[in-house]
Amino acid sequence: MSKETSQEVVYTPKDFKSDQEVRWCPGCGDHAILNSVQRAMSQLGIKKEKYAVISGIGCSSRFPYYMATYGFHGIHGRAAAISTGVKVANPELSVWTITGDGDSLAIGGNHLIHVARRNVDINLLLFNNRIYGLTKGQYSPTSVKGQITKTSPYGTVEPPFNPGELVIGAKGKFFARTIDGNIKLSTEIFTEAARHEGTSVVEVLQNCVIYNNGAYADITDREHKEDRQIILRDGEPMIFGKERDKGLILDREHMKLKVVKIGENGITEKDILVHNSTENNPGLHMMLVNMRWPNYPVALGIIRNVAAPTYDMAVHAQIGKVKESSPIKKMDDLLTSGNTWEVK
């Protein structure tokens, strides 16, 4: 790991709270995410001064002000690019990028795909509330088709992006999904995201109580959540449901996932797919990120976690190598190199 870790630093989440009053609406999912991030940071063993929290613009992007770490509140859409600069400038830092669905998928879509492609070692938390919160309720690139918002009074007519599909399509090596209210799962995922070397994108399904309340109610309500979510864990079979009697298999004939009931049609636990986030081939991961209720449970957890060289390390390694072999060691050497002549 590049980040300096130390067993001696013991933090509590409180150490990561700034003195600024948190200004999100009461009940906004962002409060819980802040909580989870502060927990994760306090547990990682990374010194506080090594954290840099970088954001774009949006409700979510106010995040750095509430953290007691180094922080940078950027401009709309550019969080991933600013973070790239920070990380490449100083790979010792643990860089956390906070962005919204509009910030990272509309105005900043270009930066998101390129940061994932390059595999810059940052942790990018994408707060997906399927709405533009800060500007008071216009549709976003993740708003579901037909969603009624202030700029789509008759419903949107455009299909949404699925962030995971986009990230994996852009050669992303780490993608996870969590829900704002599940602090335990979020903390666990943020911790793993920080440990992963490379671009870790975590989509946080976030509720905007004011402009898109209940966007995820169908999968989060207490009554049904176990049947409508599946939490993927490495090495474990993909089983879900209140009774833990449902599972996922690969329908090889149609090359797609299928929900089956254990005990029906001769299906046993052994037939159920076992999760492997480290598989390089994105095929199955792509199917998992694309699962949507009601046909499938929505996948949470770390869906993809593949080791690959990081951009920041590659940049510095190349510089190191060229430096070693070049006779030009300082500016004076360069100035006097090549074709020069003496005037006497």
């Binding site: 840099a52 950027g74 550019r78 600069g85 100083n90």
Partner: peptide, 16 residues
């Protein structure tokens, strides 16, 4: 990836 990323990566590096 574009000029905006050109300057914003640089601003990030300056911050760092």
């Amino acid at each position: 990836e574009d000029e905006i990323a050109g300057i914003t990566t640089s601003i990030g590096a300056s911050f760092a």
